Structure formats: structure tokens, C-alpha cells
Simulated assay, not measured.
Amino acid sequence: MPGRLRRKFTDDEKRAIIDGAAQKGVNAILREHGLSYSVYSRWKEKFQPEVMKEQHAQFRLQQQVRVLTAENERLKKIIANQALEIQIKTEKLVEQASRFHP
């Protein structure tokens, strides 16, 4: 837009806006300051790279936990079925042995 002045934010102001987005919500803080999401994203990447990396790592960890939990449940079912089969076979053997050795 012609005639519109470009605002400059200090690094502290940018950090405050990023922190405010975490508290008030991104859309609300962007409207309040008249910023686009792309500007916010750039600032966030610049000022909080370790936070974003940590969030990504936590997300991946949660995914791995879900996969391992599902695998654990599947294995528990297999073990339960095997234990049941062993119990049934043991009972049949005891029953057969009692027929031959009264």
C-alpha cells in the first residue's frame, strides 16, 4: 500500500509479541499489532528456535510412545493367548494322565 509507513520493532518488542501470542492467542495478538502470520513465524523462528526444536522433539516422542504402547498391547494379547493355550493343554494332559493312572 502506498503511503503506509513500515513499522520497526525492537528485538524486545518482538519477543514480547511472541510471548503475548502464547498467552492471548496468536490471532488475537496479530490483530492487536496489525501483523501478518508470516512475520510472526519469522520472528518466532529467530527468537525461539530451541523452543520450537523442543516442541518438535516432544511431538516425536509422543508419537513414539503411542506406537510403542500399541505394540505393547498387541504383544500382551499374544502372551495372554499363549498362556491360555498352555493352560488348556496342561489341563488336557492332567485329564489324560488321570484316565491312565487312576
Rank of each mutant, 00 (worst) to 15 (best):
E50T: 04
K46M: 12
A16S: 07
E85Q: 14
F47V: 02
I18E: 04
I79S: 03
K53C: 07
Q87G: 01
A22C: 03
A28R: 09
Y37W: 02
R99W: 13
Q82N: 11
I18N: 02
V51T: 14
R42D: 13
A21R: 04
E54I: 01
M1R: 04
I86H: 11
E95W: 03
E73H: 02
R7G: 08
K77Q: 13
F47N: 10
T69V: 02
T10A: 12
A22Y: 07
I29S: 14
N72H: 08
L68P: 00
A22P: 00
S41M: 10
I86L: 12
E85F: 01
Q23V: 12
S36K: 07
A22H: 09
I29L: 15
Q62A: 12
K24E: 15
I17K: 09
R31Y: 01
R6Q: 11
W43Q: 07
I78N: 08
E85C: 07
G3A: 09
T90W: 01
Q62E: 14
V65A: 12
L30S: 04
E45A: 06
T69P: 00
P49S: 10
E45L: 07
M1S: 13
Q62K: 03
M1L: 03
K8W: 11
E85N: 11
E13H: 03
R6W: 06
I78Y: 05
E95G: 05
E32F: 03
R99G: 08
T10L: 08
L93D: 12
M1A: 05
S38G: 02
Q96G: 04
E54G: 13
A22N: 11
H33G: 01
A57I: 03
A22D: 15
A80E: 15
F100H: 08
E54W: 06
A28S: 12
R15C: 12
K89L: 15
E95I: 00
H33S: 01
K24M: 13
Y37S: 09
Q55L: 12
Q58E: 15
V51L: 10
L84P: 00
E54K: 14
Q55F: 11
R66S: 05
Q48P: 03
G20Q: 09
L61P: 04
